[in-house]
Simulated scan of single mutants.
Amino acid sequence: MRYVLLIHSDPDSWVHPMFLPSGTDVDLCDARAAAFAKLLREITESGELIAASALADPITSTTVRRSGGALLATDGPVVPARSHLAGFLVVDVDSPQRAVEVAARLPAAGDGRVEIRPVMGLSGMEM
């Protein structure tokens, strides 16, 4: 089953969503980068990794919505937040437990949070 692992982190310390929390030291950055590279290598070799990407700083976002038939596009995040969506992985794993195992190994699971959501087909009937 496919899951998206949504990586949330602190927007005030945004430099890179997984490696550079506030108060960063070089050794911590190197350790997090190595752990993340190892995880990516393992899930790539196992065929579990479908896609992964970091997202740009929230200040670069545009929010689009309709109100009364009019299109509203607003630059920047909708509201200030204590965390923001910093990146994601899509994995195809055998069980929900395996998705949790992968998410737990992401550096953001230590000082941010990783949300795990099943990916539905377009019909949504499998849920």
Score class of each variant (00 low, 15 high):
residue 87 G to M: 01
residue 110 G to R: 14
residue 109 A to G: 06
residue 109 A to H: 07
residue 107 P to L: 06
residue 97 Q to E: 15
residue 87 G to I: 02
residue 105 R to V: 05
residue 94 D to I: 08
residue 89 L to I: 05
residue 110 G to W: 00
residue 96 P to E: 15
residue 94 D to G: 11
residue 83 S to A: 11
residue 92 D to N: 13
residue 89 L to N: 13
residue 110 G to E: 15
residue 103 A to E: 06
residue 105 R to Q: 13
residue 107 P to R: 07
residue 103 A to C: 04
residue 112 G to P: 03
residue 105 R to N: 09
residue 102 V to H: 09
residue 111 D to P: 01
residue 103 A to T: 04
residue 111 D to Q: 04
residue 104 A to H: 10
residue 111 D to K: 01
residue 102 V to R: 08
residue 108 A to Q: 15
residue 111 D to L: 05
residue 102 V to K: 13
residue 113 R to L: 15
residue 93 V to P: 04
residue 100 V to M: 12
residue 85 L to E: 00
residue 114 V to F: 13
residue 88 F to G: 11
residue 104 A to R: 14
residue 101 E to D: 11
residue 96 P to M: 02
residue 87 G to D: 04
residue 89 L to S: 08
residue 99 A to H: 13
residue 88 F to E: 09
residue 86 A to I: 00
residue 83 S to F: 08
residue 110 G to N: 07
residue 90 V to A: 10
residue 91 V to G: 07
residue 99 A to D: 14
residue 98 R to M: 05
residue 92 D to Q: 08
residue 90 V to K: 04
residue 84 H to P: 00
residue 85 L to K: 00
residue 83 S to L: 03
residue 104 A to Y: 01
residue 91 V to R: 04
residue 83 S to E: 15
residue 89 L to E: 11
residue 101 E to K: 01
residue 110 G to F: 00
residue 104 A to S: 15
residue 97 Q to D: 14
residue 99 A to K: 13
residue 101 E to I: 00
residue 90 V to N: 09
residue 105 R to M: 09
residue 112 G to R: 02
residue 100 V to T: 06
residue 112 G to K: 04
residue 91 V to K: 03
residue 102 V to T: 13
residue 100 V to G: 07
residue 88 F to L: 15
residue 96 P to S: 08
residue 104 A to D: 13
residue 83 S to D: 14
residue 112 G to C: 08
residue 94 D to E: 11
residue 108 A to G: 10
residue 94 D to W: 01
residue 83 S to K: 10
residue 105 R to G: 06
residue 97 Q to C: 05
residue 87 G to N: 03
residue 113 R to P: 00
residue 85 L to A: 01
residue 109 A to W: 06
residue 107 P to E: 09
residue 84 H to I: 07
residue 100 V to A: 12
residue 98 R to F: 02
residue 90 V to D: 09
residue 110 G to L: 09
residue 90 V to E: 14
